[in-house]
Amino acid sequence: MKAALCLLITNNALAQKKAPQFLIKAKIANFTDSLLFLNYGTLSASSIDSAVVKNGVFTFKGHVKEPAVAMIFTKNFKVKIDLYLENSNIAVEGDANSQFKYKVTGTGTTKEYEQLNQRFMDNRIRTVALFQKAYDLKNAGDTVAAKQLQARADSQYQWEYKARHEYIAGHPKSYISAFELLGYTTTITLSNSIKLFNGLDASIKESNIGKEIAARIELLSKVEEGKPAQEFTQSTPDGKPVTLSSYKGRYVLVEFWASWCGPCRAENPNLLKQYQLYNNKGFDILSVSLDNNKDNWLKAVEKDALPWTQVSDLKGWSNEVAVLYGIRAVPASFLIDPAGKIVATGLRGETLNKKLETLFGQVPAN
């Protein structure tokens, strides 16, 4: 019995020793902090580690059950390096003064992801340069040339979305395709995302990230256009509970935002204008804040002069309504009809304005 127990312990120890590991060795020029972090895994199940940095040199080591997306970063995100981890040796080189000048060297999935990422980084460098040149020309008074460059920059920016889509469709056995698909899947892209997911190899569908995509598709299928809106209750700043069902009989735009979100704040003047135009015709807005700081939330509401109802549980990205509706980016919105059915998602700017004009008719200018 003792011999058998010793043998079992020995075998377990050998198994642990033989477990493959990843080893990241890195050197970052002009790095002044003393600490870096590594986060890896899926969105629903991730791990985090830290490393002390000396003269820009640091290492990370560990084990992953399957290739996993990862990020090396500092607290202020001045350094942010995206990579894919697998149990092998990985080398990282870069410069803390340049967010685009990082090189990751590895094999397998790590190499595959780096090659794809470099394509996107090269395009991003060219696109940023065009946006800057267009901005300079506009300030110099050459609005015609600025508009032309802006159009080129917009086209280059949109190329990245097309390239990611093509990669997913063309690499059904790749973990990277699964990662790209997870980020691509929203209420707006849901139909296409389902087709892309169905085209993935069975081994990828059954992986951890594949299961996360399936769960996200299932969640978003409950809040797509044409479905009854998911009921919820959340409180106003003074603690008054507000239910979505209390808006039955009116069109209501459920708007997810946050005080720290620049695009959200930029859209608020347009929301205010539409609210003033159509509120007495049966249109309302219910804003759900993803803030975790009450003072910041209330200051933003006051500064932007928002008269409609505001709710939040102050849990940030873990806001219970945001989780229920699958929100991973803001601004995000759902237009719900008087019967409680979702009739449109992602409405902003002119798309929102035109939709409301279709529903309520054009309001004469004062």
Rank of each mutant, 00 (worst) to 15 (best):
Q16V: 13
Q158M: 10
P269W: 11
S245I: 06
S203P: 00
Y113N: 09
P241A: 13
N192Y: 12
I81R: 05
G282A: 12
K222W: 08
K101C: 00
V52C: 06
L286G: 11
S289M: 01
L271N: 01
V288S: 05
L181E: 04
N192E: 15
K303W: 00
T10H: 06
I176A: 11
V57G: 04
C264N: 07
G183D: 15
R126M: 11
S203W: 00
D284H: 00
L196T: 12
L23W: 00
S221N: 15
W159C: 07
N208P: 00
L116R: 04
T42S: 14
V79P: 02
I125P: 03
T186P: 01
V288M: 12
T143S: 08
N11C: 14
D142E: 14
K133T: 11
G226P: 04
Y113M: 12
T143C: 02
V363C: 05
K205D: 15
A153P: 01
L130I: 04
T143H: 11
K211V: 10
I72H: 06
W317Y: 11
T236F: 08
L36N: 06
T233Y: 05
K315V: 01
N55H: 12
D33G: 06
Y113E: 08
T189F: 10
D49M: 06
L5I: 13
G316Q: 04
G249R: 02
K133I: 02
G108S: 07
F58W: 09
D238M: 12
T243Q: 14
A305Q: 14
R152N: 15
P67W: 03
F60C: 03
I90C: 10
G210I: 09
G346F: 01
V128M: 14
F60Y: 09
A329H: 06
A45C: 13
F256C: 08
